[in-house]
Write a protein that binds this DNA or RNA. Structure first.
Lengths: 211, 211
DNA sequence: GGCATATCGATATGCTTTTATCGATATATC
DNA sequence: GATATATCGATAAAAGCATATCGATATGCC
């Protein structure tokens, strides 16, 4: 079942799950209603959900609790991914202390930084921040396979290489630069400039229309 | 020329621009080389660039300075968008103080928060953080049309409504919830859970393959 | 100056994703 | 219990996007 989920569908699944969790009061919910709430078409919702669940019943819709369970299983929220974070700057510490990741199956086990003043227990998150030379050992001992990069752009590639060297198979990159890794390693660039391009483009067209 | 840029292309343009800015030493660059650096195909690069530039010449490639200029114009970096940010928590302040946005044509003019202890000048960014009842007036006086939401999920929709009421036409939402607005308002959800779904899915398949 | 070659740009093919159509089925009402 | 209807699920068409192919063109070398 897991094989045939398309990339686009996969990215919408957490959105459905979030909506259902907020809305867990009702017993049943129809694809039509989900679509309305999220601004999608009901056909797309049905197709997405069909990929992970068969909790839908004619005339009633989907059984909410079953659908939530199916989504959580499909997304692997039952056993959370461990991750390390490199770069304890403002963004890095904001992510370290973001409690919401637990709800999405992510567990950041520790932070790393080159700056000695950052080392020790982070006040806000309560998580430990270590020197870079501890990275490899910790990743291997705890079998961490995911790295989060929140360092300045110029050192992002170097940090990426270190993470890969320490056994990471997936990298979540918040540095505003493109980084590379061998083919079997997944790089997910969280590119704010791309989002901004969409927004800015819309704004200009929207304001032009008026004039 | 601006009409026919596809959404996917639009999101890749800032990536090209970033690469070129880093690499501004050389006079010319070929689509092939850009593709190699970014892990794309040269055909896609050419097609993307063709949408915004004709700085390409056979045998030489693209004139870097011209291409940068074309990209900046297409992305509207010549006149930056002003924006307001609502929610001066850790993520909000991290974004407020992120200097890199200037390079992407974004200028956050001020922050807003309900908590009186956040009001005043933010130490790190030097930007002012105001009470929510100042929002409408400031947006209108400065003709701000873009709002950034970094508040907890439960109040995100309410903040969105206020921003729209104050004249915003585009919303950049970092709250981990889906928000709605009238059709002509663009909502860009920066959904970390979606990214995480991709990463987690890759990890599981990758680790399964070995076993 | 002519020729080989790197590179572009345009047209065509194929794949992925979305949207449309239609029949199937369980529930509720009479 | 029969019938109407809300809703699902599957198959089919359309759109959007990526990849392949091929001719055109400017550059540099002989």
């Amino acid at each position: 079942m897991l094989e045939k989920i398309s990339l686009q569908t996969l990215q919408r699944l957490p959105v459905y799950l979030e909506l259902l969790r907020q809305d867990a009061a009702s017993d049943n919910i129809s694809a039509n209603r989900i679509a309305e709430e999220l601004g999608l078409t009901e056909i797309q919702v049905r197709k997405d959900l069909a990929a992970v669940s068969d909790a839908g019943r004619p005339k009633k819709g989907f059984v909410v609790t079953d659908l939530i369970a199916d989504l959580e299983r499909a997304l692997g929220y039952d056993n959370a991914d461990d991750a390390v974070l490199v770069g304890a700057g403002r963004l890095g510490r904001a992510l370290l202390s973001y409690a919401g990741f637990q709800r999405y199956g992510l567990n950041i086990v520790a932070g790393f930084d080159t700056n000695p003043r950052a080392w020790g227990q982070d006040e806000v998150s309560g998580k430990m921040i270590y020197a870079m030379d501890k990275l490899d050992d910790l990743c291997r001992r705890l079998s961490v396979h995911m790295g989060i990069i929140t360092v300045p752009a110029p050192v992002a590639q170097c940090v990426c290489d270190e993470l890969v060297g320490a056994g990471c198979r997936a990298i979540w990159n918040f540095a505003p630069t493109h980084i590379r890794a061998p083919g079997n390693i997944l790089i997910k660039n969280e590119n704010m400039a791309s989002s901004l391009a969409l927004i800015s483009h819309h704004l200009r067209r929207n304001l032009e229309e008026e004039a």
